[in-house]
Amino acid sequence: MLTKLFSSKLMEPKLKEAKFSLFLLNRNKLTKISLIIVLLLILIAVISPWIAPYPGHTDLEVNPQDKLLPPSSQYFFGTDELGRDIFSRVIFGTRISLNTALVAVILSLIIGIPLGAVAGTIGGKIDELIMRITDIFLSFPPLLLAIAIAAVLGPSLQNAMIAIAISWWPWYTRLVRGQAISLKERQFVKAAEAIGTSQNKIIFKHIIPNCISPVIVQASMDMGGVILTISSLSFLGLGAQAPTPEWGLMISTSRNFFLNAWWYSIFPGIAIFITVLAFNLLGDGLREILDPKTRKN
């Protein structure tokens, strides 16, 4: 009953916060544009089967009589060596890249955040152990790790994703650990300890929710980096396999034709660039918007 009575009040502070964020967003045009692009890309990813003119070309269908045609009104971005519409394939690539990157980042977050929070909050031997493991994983070049995993499990987009998650989580562990170390000195954590709140609850209810802002910023910036890495792995043949319309893989195949079919490599490259750029700009902007220092003024 009471809860119902105050439910409108419950929203009030959040609304004010949101309004303030919107104000900061409005002030920062580049961030606004990048946010629009990111939202647009997500939309494209969701509705790609309906907007791609030749959805079949993203799968096993081939069209050899139209191979390597330059861009035209029929094929906006031209066709590839099997006569497939590059425009349709680039559109579908959005879905693949965003999906894979998102899963890889979320996987890294799931591993990285709790480890960092535990290391930072508990400290001592456990911290030392976790951080050394983190160091070990950080000293593997992600590419080598991906190579190793591809060698063990066979190259596929999914395995590339796993490889990226394995090499990416230590960054979040470091980030969250740093936050946790400063948070645990905060009095609300001390207060919780004095009350007798269990350590688990302190970590998950007090520490982690308060590290979320910097993690979101980092994650949105990492989306760009992860998309780049996925396409690199696919380019090397360690990620997506034909006929998947993955951007990196498309560029890799295009190498054999790039002297006489420039469009083949250009468009997937532009797609990667725009997507990564949008996420990087968004991350930059979010950092500014969520930064407590900017918020104070």
Binding site: R186, Q187, F188, K190, A191, A192, H206, P209, N210
Partner: peptide, 10 residues
């Protein structure tokens, strides 16, 4: 605690 700004989880 001393500082009511940090003794309450924001």
């Amino acid at each position: 605690f001393q500082d009511p700004f940090w003794s309450l989880n924001p």
